[in-house]
Design a protein around this nucleic acid. Structure first.
Length: 466
DNA sequence: TGAAATGTTGGGGCG
DNA sequence: ACGCCCCAACATTTC
């Protein structure tokens, strides 16, 4: 084959890329193509931070391609039209792309594959949907048996890492949008885009933090987690490489606790795959609760309360710190995600889909499957979800997982003067002390918008079966 | 990947 | 010495 297109969607990497490998093995000329589909720019579920991360990732990928004698072609438009035009222009005979199992992508690819030579190779997960099913062929809806089957049937071939190409030949004189024109606005300081950064972080994580991950991951002020989600989201790191690193850490662990830690992280990667499978087998979860009995709840959906939650003004420091971390950095610690989700759904009785949308608009790592799965889990509406009566206490969770108030002080400087005992529930500080410290509740920081004790009881009544 | 309510146990103070 | 009470610590149940 003379020319093939490598259609890049969410696999912005050269290492361990099955679609790219298939393309350059099949054809002597490869056109790395990214299509800016207007449908995503209009979506309510796309935010500027993730967009900026993507643009930066494309820029980095372009530079990496240039070093191999190639370059990135960026075109704007409806994918099938862009592809047809480029094929006519270049005589390309095939299109290679990595699978994308999210709903929009499946519809799009389903259309395209009927008329164009689109070959879907490789996946954003190690075990593609359909390959982990029960004996009777139906999908798992409970995590533990899913993970057991996922691990048991892991083939050695699924852990072979593909090398990056050393050279890619690309036709000259193809028109392209300039990636430098796309990159605007502030890039995410904590997450430089690109596969090099992803590789470095993975190495750092497995060499240092993974040994204590099981415990350290709970502490919101600590860097106890891998910080890889944005890279996995855009395929700047292959899921396979992350899994291989986790398996190796399990094997080489020095003692039982270290091994448990590595296994805990592997399980998190498997949760990610679980939710990809769930969305694939039950695409309706994107629109509604997985569990039927929770589909017609009379949510309070108080707009003002939602606004206060979004802006980190609920009066509960751990919640507000987390929400400000999200809006300022585009990322939130995982435990904090559970806490704010529990608070929105259970304390405020706001539809989990409102929270899901806000996360998609703000998270750099916002992914339809993982985000939906996480929200349905937290709301208790999903597969193998948290039971409705599991309500996080924002005060005791704060005391447990931010004992020194470091996280709160980082994101809520107005509370910095409170001591470690007071900072988790500042409204309990005597009024005279509030004035003395210079942090008056209702003036310098909001009073709690709900009483958690009452809200908890209200949630139990709300979710209890009729 | 919860937390509150309720139950049980055991040590120490005390009459 | 003994029984009784209190209460903290831990365990179990419940939502």
């Amino acid at each position: 084959m003379q020319t093939a297109i490598w259609w890049i969607r969410r696999d912005l990497r050269l290492t361990d890329n099955q679609a790219l490998t298939a393309a350059y093995k099949a054809a002597s000329m490869v056109i790395p193509l990214f299509i800016i589909d207007p449908i995503f720019e209009q979506s309510n579920y796309v935010g500027s931070k993730r967009q900026a991360f993507l643009w930066e990732g494309l820029q980095v990928l372009h530079q990496a391609l240039c070093a191999l004698g190639s370059r990135l072609i960026i075109r704007r438009g409806v994918p099938e039209e862009v592809l047809v035009k480029l094929m006519r222009e270049t005589g390309a005979e095939a299109i290679f792309a990595e699978e994308d199992y999210s709903n929009l992508a499946r519809r799009r690819d389903g259309r395209i594959v009927k008329t164009l030579p689109l070959k879907l190779v490789g996946a954003p997960c190690v075990r593609p949907p359909g390959t982990v099913v029960k004996a009777d062929g139906t999908p798992y809806t409970v995590f533990t048996p899913f993970s057991r089957a996922w691990k048991a049937q892991l083939l050695p071939a699924q852990t072979d890492i593909l090398c990056a190409p050393t050279q890619i030949n690309t036709p000259a004189n193809l028109s392209t949008e300039l990636v430098s024109n796309l990159v605007q606005g502030e890039a995410a300081v904590s997450f430089p885009a690109g596969e090099q950064t992803a590789q470095k972080r993975l190495q750092y994580f497995v060499q240092t933090s993974i040994a204590d991950y099981a415990d350290a991951r709970n502490y919101v002020a600590q860097a106890g987690t891998a910080h890889l989600s944005p890279y996995l989201r855009f395929g700047m790191l292959s899921a396979r490489q992350a899994v291989v690193a986790a398996l190796r850490a399990c094997e080489t662990a020095a003692d039982a606790p270290q091994q448990k830690s590595a296994e805990t992280w592997l399980n998190e990667l498997i949760w990610r795959e679980f939710f990809i499978h769930i969305l694939y087998h039950f695409p309706f979860v994107a629109e509604m609760s997985f569990r039927e009995r929770y589909r017609n709840l009379a949510w309070r959906n108080n707009v003002e309360a939602f606004d206060q939650w979004c802006n980190g003004r609920t009066g509960y420091p751990i919640i507000d710190a987390a929400m400000r971390q999200l809006s300022q950095t585009g990322w939130m610690h995982n435990r904090a995600r559970m806490l704010v989700a529990s608070f929105l759904v259970k304390d405020l009785l706001i539809d989990w889909r409102w929270g899901e949308r806000w996360f998609m608009q703000n998270l750099i790592d916002g992914d339809p499957a993982a985000n939906n799965g996480g929200w349905q889990w937290a709301a208790g509406t999903g597969t193998d979800a948290a039971p409705y009566f599991r309500v996080f206490n924002p005060i005791t969770q704060s005391q447990k997982f931010d004992p020194a108030g470091k996280y709160i002080r980082q994101w809520l400087p107005e509370l910095a003067a409170l001591d470690n005992k007071q900072i988790h529930a500042p409204w309990r500080v005597p009024l005279l002390d509030q004035y003395r410290i210079g942090c008056v509740i209702g003036r310098d920081y909001p009073a709690p918008i709900v009483d958690h004790k009452l809200a908890r009881q209200r949630a139990l009544d709300f979710f209890k079966l009729p």
